[in-house]
Design a protein around this nucleic acid. Sequence first.
DNA 1: GAACCCGGCTTGTTCAGACAAGTTCCGTCC
DNA 2: GGACGGAACTTGTCTGAACAAGCCGGGTTC
Lengths: 250, 250
Amino acid sequence: MAASRYLQIAEALRRSILGGEYPVGSQLPSESDLAARWSASRGTVRQAVALLASEGLIGSRQGARRIVLRRERRHSFAELNSFAQWAQGEGYEISSRILTRTRRPATPTESTRLTLPPGAGVLYVVRLRLLDGEPAMLERTAYADWVAPSVEELPDDCVSIMNSLADAHGIVAHYGDHLIDAVPAGSVDARLLHVRRGSPLLRQRHLTCTATGRPIEWTDDRYVAGAVTFSVSNSADASPLSRRAGRLDG
Amino acid sequence: MAASRYLQIAEALRRSILGGEYPVGSQLPSESDLAARWSASRGTVRQAVALLASEGLIGSRQGARRIVLRRERRHSFAELNSFAQWAQGEGYEISSRILTRTRRPATPTESTRLTLPPGAGVLYVVRLRLLDGEPAMLERTAYADWVAPSVEELPDDCVSIMNSLADAHGIVAHYGDHLIDAVPAGSVDARLLHVRRGSPLLRQRHLTCTATGRPIEWTDDRYVAGAVTFSVSNSADASPLSRRAGRLDG
DNA sequence: GAACCCGGCTTGTTCAGACAAGTTCCGTCC
DNA sequence: GGACGGAACTTGTCTGAACAAGCCGGGTTC
């Protein structure tokens, strides 16, 4: 339990806010107060509050005390790249069926996104995801050739491929790009997701990379309308000074 | 131009990355290098690189040099709050038509979102937004009663209401919550946006607040499929994005 | 009563130095 | 050749100090 000092402070403050000790709209103690209370320097306290600010929990204006903006916890990045992780956290019964798993040459889009050399192959996987037994999402993923062997040795009913890759091979997703839009269901989508052709789907395409910027996968996920809503919070002072914490890659 | 030192450094580095001086995948100079080059302290340099990291331009791992992750500038979600700001930045010809502007009692959803006392009124505005003359988005906004007078005195063809509020009354949007999903076009949507009924729309509902957490507006924006794609980048440390299930009433 | 100003408080920015923890790379040993 | 070990380097965390910039309340003035 040797977490950094600023993480401890942040965690304590977070708990106080979530627990209602500092109600929404109220002021946080000043930095010097907190520094004294934790016998830490002001700089360390600032790291802690910067972290909370980046989570959207608190806001700040120069000269005025920090203010509690909201009381809910926001989910972090890992859950964005992992449908399974998110769904389990929300208490859903989740299952998935692999419909296709083939090696084939990369399409032009995949080559570009995954920055593959011309002629390289990918492992193409189509999975149907169900929430509480209902079809909720259709996932088409192209894995870069260098991870393909690791993916292929996973069992067919593997719930979270990214989690398994991290555990078994130390391949950890570090960041990603996401493109979100709405598209009409194609005939394949419609049949598999049990919706009418042309009905709205929420599409999320994303690229996942390692900490060194090496692309892992390029995915096209299509959600049944109403099954999922993306939620974003943003603050004007988009957390500039956030010196950050993070446990990654092996 | 007495911008902060760390902002100057960040801007210079950003330009170098965007200009290709540091290609994607290459290493940035070490912090001490940069500190020496700018005759600044290491702490200041760290603020600069933290900013770039939060923009997704660079990544870092303890012990290894920082790596350039991408070369395009990503828009921050701050611009999510302003359609006008985004569209102008992208070079679109933008126009808008106000279709409705009425005072009426708040709906239950609006009361909850805007945390209004029971029975309070809102200013309800419906606007059609066009990109290069094509209908692109239908915007339904409920302004809290305390900003309603300021909004009403704006001209009908005002391009960016939030910008005007900031300039004229010092009412500045500081943070917001966004809910993104896909919905079928209703008959009103279909007629105004020139699409068929039931065709996919990308819906973005959002709440905008001041720095003190006071709600300003609650909006329901519906984009024609294909007109707009939301783009998010995130790194492992802190992501503003999360995913929510099903129907969040309201 | 209303407008104004000022002093105290609080956050924003910067500095210089120190140690911890992780990465990289090279030389050595088997 | 390959495994091991260690030195040099780099980022992560923390301290204590100082000044700038902005906010707030209270007192003064009109």
